[in-house]
Amino acid sequence: MQHPKSLDTLVGLFVVIGIGALFFIGMKVSNLASYSNNDGYTITARFENSGGLKVRSPVSVAGVRIGRITAIDFDNESYESVVQMQIEPQYNTLPDDSSASIFTAGLLGEQYISLQTGASEEYLTHNSEIDITQSAIVLEEIIGQFLFSDNEN
């Protein structure tokens, strides 16, 4: 069978563009680029209420993302939410008296954990736990408090 060279070239171009498009939506559109580093160390924090926090939500210090949440579990004994987060290995000088709070990005944005650094000389290491935590702000609770205090006045 006769095969013109240009046909091969066009088919090759098609396949390359198609795979390139897949690569593009993988790297540029999705979070594949941030998947790559699975190393790093894990720390945990206990919250009274972890609100709308989700697995893979960001963990940030001073507004910079330094890790992601890897698991959210419920503790059967203390009735608390146990949040595990993975911190990237280059951020290994977080003081061990840092505190963790759950904030919301914008009015309707996703919730994330923000770490406030402490003053200790000791650093957080693998499997260490953050003691000082501040729960997520639940809008209904605030409204309830507001109405309650209004009644008292």
């Binding site: 098609f14 396949v15 563009i17 198609g18 795979i19 498009a21 897949l22 593009f24 939506i25 559109v29």
Partner: peptide, 15 residues
């Protein structure tokens, strides 16, 4: 073979 590639091209160009 070509359907997934075409869909990927469609999504990329759409974005």
């Amino acid at each position: 073979l070509s359907m997934p590639l075409l869909a990927a091209i469609f999504s990329m160009v759409g974005v």
